[in-house]
Amino acid sequence: MADAVRLYTRYIGASLRAQMQYRASFIMNALGHLAITAGEFLSLAALFGRFGNIDGWTLPEVALFYGLVSCAFALCEGVARGFDDFSRTIRNGDFDRLLVRPRSTLLQVAGQELQLLRVGRFLQGLAVLIWSAATLGIAWTLPRILLVLGAVLGGVCLFYGLFVLQATLCFWTVQSLEVMNTLTYGGVETAQFPVTVYRAWFRNIFIYVVPLACVTYFPALAILDRADALGSPTWFQWLAPLVGVGFMALAPQVWHFGVRHYRSTGS
């Protein structure tokens, strides 16, 4: 295990040094990323400027959701790049190369790339989060700080699990990834709002199937000290981010099933 962690850091180091070969392009890309996501938030703000509130939620409150999910997704896109880009690994035949190395395939794909330019989106999400907390006058007690960190980390885990599932699908087909994009990118869009604004069936998907609500909606309620219209108990709101960790823990089982399929069919 310690050896695996050491190798992972070696992989990441190599990836970072490789990206530093293109310093100018990195800076331009990260700034571009920041500008695009900032524009995204401004259009959200414009929406609230027109309607005042949505279903009883104000802009600073929704900004908390937005900040949590943006930070989590940006971090995850940065570290899960190898899985996000896995269809290319399959198409190039590079997965064969991973199979002839004496290391777990998950570790090798995970270590393929740490994409630094996602730092743009992360900083923007963090800025929105800080603005939201300041506007709402949230008292930053230690438990609250831990809950914010937990929600972001739980979100990273959840998205990471989704990226591993998306990559696993590539063992069968490299053509049907749009389905997964509706869960990842679509999930980010969805989780920017409290789940109560959606119809029940749609809401339930993001609570029970792809439990994004557990890393945004429920912990956000606890941070805002607001009662849940859906009736969840406060203790659950504090522990909900763990669901994201559990979701990620399931992904390796599915992955190994996919690897077995690949090795028997050689797709």
Partner: peptide, 8 residues
């Protein structure tokens, strides 16, 4: 690929 352990 079979000899290299890639394919079963």
């Amino acid at each position: 690929k079979v000899l290299a352990g890639i394919l079963v």
